[in-house]
Structures are given as C-alpha cells and as structure tokens.
C-alpha cells in the first residue's frame, strides 16, 4: 500500500469489484478498453478481470474514500524482466490527476516489489495525452506507434507503445518529488 496526500494505492479486494465494473461500463471508454464493448456479466467478471493478470491495485481518493481508478499489472515476464500495465480511470475523475498520481505510486510499488526492468503499456491515440507529460520529462518513452492497429467503431486507430524503464524511474526528479511529498504525509 502506498499513501500520498490525495490517494491510497492498495491491492484490490472483492468488495471493489462492483466499482471496477462500473468504471469499465462507462460507454465513453468501453469500446477502447480491453473488452471492446463486450463487458462480461457481473457473475463472470472476476475471472475475466484477472485473466493474464498478476495484480490489481486500486487508486482510492483519500478525501472521499471513492475508488477513482485502478491499475493492472499483467503479462508479467520474469524471464525477460518486464511486465505490462493498464490504467483505468472513473469517468468523473478523468483529468483530476488522481489516477496519474496513482500511476506514480504504481511505478514505485511495481519497481519496488517486482524484479522487473521495464513496464510497458499500450495507449490508444485518443488516450495517449495522459502520458505526454511523462514522455516530455523522460520518465516514460514512446517505443513506437502501431499505425491503425485497432478498429474502434469500425475506424482504424493508432496504438502507442509506451515504456517506463526501472533505472529511469528510480533516477527521475518526479519520483524524488513524489517520495518527498509522501514522506510528509507519513511523518
């Protein structure tokens, strides 16, 4: 568990599933998230949620106690030393910065608790702006763009491959600032 002034990043528990289901049901994003608009019924949700997944961490707002989003560590490959993550934000919390703060906590947790060198993510063209500041600052790198990789509503959409390297994250000023603020919360 990682606590900041605004959020708590903690492992998911079954009591969170209805909220996660609600987040994934948002029609604005359902087509581009992993079920591509075909979210399984609630009784089949748990196995679908955990497919190819090693861990799920929820981002909980400290002020309201609401789960504002969640991050998944999936397709972990300990032989190669890398894993993939997916990030889901509740519609009412997009743009609040809470889930992106959760991503910083997630990097701290993933690189701290798992022997991985790289975290990778795929981002649709219309979501990639969420990573832009990290790409600009250098905590994340764009590994390439799969042009017209997916069809969303029948239209081809680019998919960006994003990478966060362990050493880059550990040395980043953003991480130092993040942990300085964390230390103030816990002291």
């Amino acid at each position: 568990m990682i606590t900041t002034a605004r959020i708590v990043l903690r492992p998911v528990v079954p009591a969170d599933y209805p909220r996660l289901y609600e987040i994934e049901s948002d029609p604005a994003t359902a087509l581009t998230w992993r079920y591509r608009g075909e979210l399984p019924p609630p009784q089949e949700y748990e196995p679908a949620l955990w497919r190819q997944t090693q861990q799920i961490m929820v981002v909980q707002g400290r002020r309201t106690g609401t789960v504002v989003g969640y991050l998944q560590l999936h397709d972990l490959d300990l032989r190669a030393g890398h894993g993939w993550f997916s990030l889901y934000a509740g519609p009412e919390h997009r743009g609040s910065g809470l889930v992106m703060e959760g991503l910083m906590a997630f990097c701290e947790w993933a690189f701290g608790d798992w022997p991985i060198r790289w975290l990778y993510a795929h981002s649709f063209e219309h979501n990639v702006h969420a990573f832009e500041s990290g790409l600009r600052r250098g905590e994340a790198v764009r590994l390439g763009v799969l042009r017209e990789r997916m069809l969303v509503d029948g239209r081809p959409t680019d998919v960006h491959a994003i990478g966060i390297e362990r050493e880059q994250w550990l040395a980043s000023p953003l991480r130092r600032r993040f942990n300085t603020l964390r230390a103030r919360v816990t002291s």
Binding site: R79, A80, W118, L143, G144, V145, G163
Partner: peptide, 11 residues
C-alpha cells in the same frame, strides 16, 4: 516497416 522497438527486451 518497423513500428515499435523494445530495447533490451529479453536475455
């Protein structure tokens, strides 16, 4: 045409 490069992907 190369679209994505994963540096140092696996040993």
């Amino acid at each position: 045409e190369v679209e994505v490069t994963y540096p140092a992907f696996a040993p």
